[in-house]
Design a protein around this nucleic acid. Structure first.
Lengths: 213, 213
DNA sequence: ATGCCAGTAGTCAAGTTTGATTACTGGCCC
DNA sequence: GGGCCAGTAATCAAACTTGACTACTGGCAT
């Protein structure tokens, strides 16, 4: 699963109605251009693609008010909302060790009810533990441990990462159960988009050194 | 950086001379089809691409001895070896939080001299600490901590992952400095490829449950 | 002897991602 | 008042990835 659809759907949904550049700007505001493949091309592609699939409805709009080519505004459909929630649930549940998906899932977690969020994270932990078990099983093959040489280090890395993820997930569950944050149906939702005239404090801010991809 | 080039270059290099199916088989042997995007199409594409770029030399070979269409054998060139080592060094140094690249880097780490491996891993740790610092800086913005709401959890996730990675890297450095494994120029290298008639014990083994991508 | 399955080897079309580029407005500087 | 830069908005070609498919051999059960 790629993070881009989740991010774009989430952005459009929070706006109610948004054109490509707005989505793009939100993702930059969230720093998503740094930790996901949210390049302009991917965003516009995802919008068109999802419009074709009926997840978004495209309103054709006249030449834009502020320079540039005519723009299209998108609105999420019922099918799109369903898909959005499905992707969100999957991103929280599955242990696929991809930062972008994990981060996006956390970013939108408050769109779910508190109880469900906890349940999904608990399922995530179960998944991590299963995967960990299956790795350690391969790790020690029938003919004694460490015929693997340095290859065993790869498994060790996986196990460490899995443990770290499980530990972090447990912490998050505890915070959520402790009443932190505002979830769906709990009044005033957290709004994480830029309103129409608002400037983006993160735009072209000096980059994190992670970019060394 | 995508892991596929590193994996394919490394596989061809270990074989001396290999055709596509051999590479594909090695990657499956290493389990790479499970933790990286090492699909047949990607492998053949990478081979052709790198041949065009002069990193591999393509020998046109007569119809294969064991069924199927005629096959092409590849051999790594001097430029290819350079590129391979550059990719390998980058995979060990950079903190790009992508499992496939990390895993591939560890898999080939013994192709470097022991001292260099340690140096690269130490640089990796420095990189992680820098990235960590830059995240925690953003984390606590000028107007007091946690105006971020649940978004702060994303940063927390990153910090935890970074710490886990740093800890694991320190452990690996310790093991390497303690004399573990056989590195470049230390006699009998570890061989991780399938010889020509050798059967693959991992082929179609029951999958790890991680596949839930 | 026929059919069919497993293994060997590679190709292809469709979809996605990337990075550069286009196109247009408005403000500012000299 | 002309040039140029910053911002707004989107497109495009090229590269890459995916998953399904082709094509051919040999063995083995019927």
């Amino acid at each position: 699963m790629s993070a881009i659809r989740l991010l774009v759907l989430g952005a459009v949904r929070q706006h109610g109605r948004a054109h490509g550049y707005q989505v793009r700007n939100d993702l930059e505001y969230w720093g998503a251009h740094e930790w996901s493949n949210a390049k302009p091309g991917s965003i516009y592609h995802a919008l068109k693609q999802m419009a074709k699939q009926g997840l978004l409805h495209a309103h054709e709009i006249a030449p834009s008010t502020a320079g540039g080519p005519p723009r299209t505004e998108y609105e999420i459909t019922a099918a799109g909302t369903e898909e959005y929630l499905a992707l969100l649930r999957e991103s929280l549940t599955s242990y696929d060790q991809k930062m972008d998906v994990r981060s996006a899932g956390i970013g939108f977690i408050v769109d779910l009810p508190r109880g469900e969020a906890v349940a999904l994270l608990e399922e995530r932990i179960r998944g991590i533990e299963q995967w960990r078990a299956s790795v350690t099983e391969h790790y020690v093959p029938e003919d004694g441990p460490a015929q693997l040489g340095h290859i065993g280090e790869i498994m060790d890395l996986w196990v460490h990462s899995a443990d770290a993820d499980a530990a972090w997930t447990r912490g998050l569950i505890a915070r959520i159960e402790g009443g932190a944050y505002t979830f769906a149906g709990e009044g005033e939702p957290f709004v994480g988009v830029l309103r129409d005239g608002q400037e983006n404090p993160y735009a072209t801010g000096e980059r994190h050194p992670q970019d060394a991809r």
